[in-house]
């Protein structure tokens, strides 16, 4: 009995901030407002599966996928290089990676506006070199750039954490058995870092697939993601029912993704642990 008491605040917390909102979302998703009352309906979901909205979902998943792949390709080498450094140097590099995250998220993303604009920094440089200007803003490229910029640390940190813990004797064992640098990496270091890679992928994919502020600022509503649709339903057009249905679908997408990755992690982790 005694051991249960300290959990109550946490349960209350869960109820207020997790369970109740989720119940409300489901409630709104399966109802519509009719003559002042709420009526059960599946209309919201039927609408969500119209081709136009499926297109938006597909775009969200596609962009989140690209963002995740790019983060992995950029983040893994960084994590690897950092993990190789001495503790002091490592802390400084990690600090530098984390510092931008202390800056306001909007401010960081706004900064990209002034870089990518038609009269922005990049185009000014191009123009002064006599080159034609590029349309860098308000397209999918800009949105992916913004996502990668904001979420890259979430890829680097978990991979770094696991690489840092890599048992040096395993690396030596591999060398001893004839593995050169590439073989050591491919056959030992990388396979052992897979759990970090998986948690990095999860931590980048989740915010990327739900992003709406980045796509608002850098996509200018030209690159509308499922997050923007939801935001619009709640804050502009006040259709909470449709917005909730979209939220439920997004939740399902996320649960499926987590499921796939945790299965992958378990398969991998069985051998690791």
């Amino acid at each position: 009995m005694r051991s249960k008491t300290p959990a109550y605040p946490y349960i209350v917390w869960m109820a207020i901030f997790i369970i109740i909102p989720v119940i409300l979302v489901f409630y709104y998703a399966f109802t519509k407002t009719e003559s002042g009352g709420m009526v059960f309906t599946l209309e919201n979901f039927a609408r969500a599966f119209e081709p136009i909205y499926l297109g938006v979902m597909w775009r969200s998943i596609r962009l989140a996928f690209f963002c995740t792949v790019i983060c992995l390709v950029l983040g893994y080498p960084v994590a690897y290089i950092v993990a190789q450094r001495k503790t002091g140097t490592r802390d400084i590099i990690l600090f530098l990676i984390i510092v931008p995250m202390w800056m306001n998220f909007l401010l960081r993303t706004y900064a990209w506006l002034t870089i990518l604009e038609q009269n922005g920094i990049i185009n000014s440089v191009l123009a002064s070199a006599g080159l034609p200007k590029l349309n860098l803003l308000y397209n999918e490229g800009a949105v992916i750039l913004g996502m990668v910029y904001n979420f890259l640390p979430f890829m680097i940190l978990p991979i770094h954490t696991i690489l840092k813990k890599t048992d040096l004797s395993l690396v030596e064992a591999a060398q001893d058995l004839g593995a050169n640098g590439i073989n050591v990496f491919l056959r030992v270091v990388f396979p052992l870092s897979v759990p970090g890679v998986i948690s990095g992928i999860t931590m980048v994919f989740m915010p990327a697939v739900t992003a709406f502020i980045i796509s608002n600022l850098l996509g200018g509503k030209q690159v509308v993601l499922i997050g923007n649709l939801i935001e619009d339903q709640f804050l502009n057009v006040y259709n909470w029912h449709f917005g909730s249905a979209l939220s439920v679908i997004l939740m399902i997408i996320i649960v499926i993704t987590i499921g796939i990755f945790s299965v992958a992690e378990r398969d991998e982790g069985g051998a690791v642990l």
Binding site: I52, Y53, G55, V56, K221, V224, N228, L229, D232, Q233, N236, V237, Y238, N239, F242
Partner: peptide, 9 residues
Amino acid sequence: DKAWTEVLA
């Protein structure tokens, strides 16, 4: 609202 959402989507 619906029409506008479709334009954006």
